[in-house]
Computed example of a mutant assay.
Amino acid sequence: MVRVKQINGKQKLEDTIQEKILKAKKDKYESKTSVDKSKKLYRKRGNFVLDEIRHYQLVTENLILKKPFQRLVKEILINVQAENARPLYRMSCAAVCILQDMAESYLTDLMNDGVICALHANRITIFPKDFDLVLRLSPNY
């Protein structure tokens, strides 16, 4: 049974036909533009890595998590205390944060110089020998 509009008691069949045509066109367009959620979107190789690089270039927060870094610092302090047999060392939260910032900046500078050494050798992959070369050549490290 076809639904028809009644305006002032008169049926307008042509309005409903036009509405059906518009709805069919709209459904056809939506089916083309919508993506199946079951299908995985295909991305070109390397795009994800480039997106990660762009993201981490904009991020200003620390990349190393705070708790694991604090545990590492505590472990190093315990080892130093065991060697020296001195009283307990304590570190404030601000000191650990500053130490974390400096460690991250050191590592990023070392990585950048390692990438430059790899590119100089016409390679893309970074090898341990690149870091050895960086540590040997620069007095900053």
Results as ranks from 00 to 15, higher is better:
Glu14Pro: 00
Val59Tyr: 03
Lys44Gln: 10
Lys20Met: 13
Cys117Asn: 13
Ala24Ile: 01
Gln11Phe: 00
Lys32Val: 07
Leu133Lys: 13
Ile116Cys: 13
Leu135Ile: 08
Glu30Thr: 07
Asn140Thr: 09
Glu104Phe: 02
Val134Pro: 01
Gln70Asp: 05
Ala94Tyr: 02
Arg136Pro: 11
Val80Glu: 10
Tyr56Pro: 01
Ser38His: 12
Ser34Asp: 08
Cys117Glu: 15
Ala24Arg: 06
Ser38Arg: 14
Arg123Cys: 00
Leu63Pro: 05
Asp27Cys: 01
Lys37Gln: 15
Ser92Asp: 07
Lys37Asp: 11
Val80Ile: 05
His120Val: 09
His55Trp: 04
Asp15Gln: 13
Ile76Pro: 01
Asn79Leu: 09
Glu83Phe: 10
Ser31Phe: 11
Tyr106Gln: 03
Ile78Phe: 09
Ile21Met: 06
Glu83His: 07
Lys10Phe: 09
Lys10Arg: 12
Lys74Gln: 14
Ala82Gln: 12
Asn112His: 14
Leu133Asn: 12
Arg90Ile: 06
Glu61Arg: 10
Leu41Thr: 14
Val134Tyr: 01
Glu83Asp: 06
Lys5Thr: 11
Thr33Gly: 00
Val4Pro: 04
Lys23Cys: 01
Glu19Lys: 11
Ile7Tyr: 05
Asp109Asn: 10
Lys67Val: 10
Lys20Asp: 10
Pro87Leu: 02
Lys10Glu: 14
Ile126Met: 01
Tyr141Asp: 04
Ala121Tyr: 10
